[in-house]
Amino acid sequence: MPSSCDPQYAPAGDVNAALLVIDSRLKSIYDPRDTDPEQQRLTQQFIASLGPTDVDDLIDGACTLVYIFMKWLRMAHEDHGKDVIEYVVPSLVATMRKMPKSVSPEAIPTMAGLVIAAGTGLSPSLWRQQYGDWTKDEMNPLEATALLLAEHINRLTDDREFATRLVTEALSSVEQD
């Protein structure tokens, strides 16, 4: 019997906007000197202009990114006989604990649960929905979670663009179908 958190029932949200935010953050991390101030300003302006429905779509898009990243990580770990939860979640939690300005200690269990849900094939957004509406205090941790997963994938593949390409190729294949 399918779970109520099965990804087929989840809204995809605005994956393009969520990917824009994550890709922009990745680029600024990888080479702060190469950061385009105009791009940063436009990204911040875009985020500030979002209405309530747009924010929900962006949140669902970020959850979709988490799902896509964890699905890829799960397949990559299974190819090596490893459990994605065992290898990804502890380092993710440890990294978030080192980011107290962006991720409060109270948000870490929720973000770990979100990643575990995705790692076991459940929709992160539907899993989170069981516990009520998203809070303002969870927005930075959600962004950090998607960012850290993307960066983890990029490190594993030794390719700073891999996670972004992974999502854009998945979106392209869906559009073609």
Rank of each mutant, 00 (worst) to 15 (best):
P11G: 08
V21Y: 03
S49P: 02
A10K: 00
A146P: 06
Y30S: 08
D14T: 03
Y9I: 04
P11I: 09
V174E: 13
S91R: 14
I22M: 04
P2H: 04
Q40G: 08
S172G: 10
I47C: 00
D6L: 05
C63Y: 12
D14F: 01
S49Q: 02
W72I: 04
Y87P: 06
P52F: 00
L19A: 06
G13F: 00
A144G: 07
P7F: 05
E78Q: 15
S91C: 04
D158T: 15
G81I: 04
W72Y: 14
Q8W: 05
P109Q: 02
E151N: 15
I47T: 11
K82L: 11
L58N: 00
D14P: 08
A118E: 00
D83R: 04
L156G: 07
P7C: 05
R155Y: 08
V84P: 10
K101Q: 09
A107P: 11
G61C: 07
S28L: 02
S125A: 11
I153S: 03
A170P: 10
V84F: 04
H77K: 11
T120I: 13
E151S: 14
A94K: 11
E78D: 08
Q45L: 12
A18C: 01
M1L: 09
I22C: 03
V103P: 06
A17D: 09
C63H: 13
E143A: 15
Y67K: 13
L166T: 04
A170R: 13
T157A: 10
I29L: 10
V93I: 12
R155L: 09
Y9E: 04
Q39E: 09
M99P: 06
I85E: 08
P100Y: 02
F69N: 06
S3Y: 03
R128E: 06
R74K: 14
G121T: 10
T53K: 11
D6V: 05
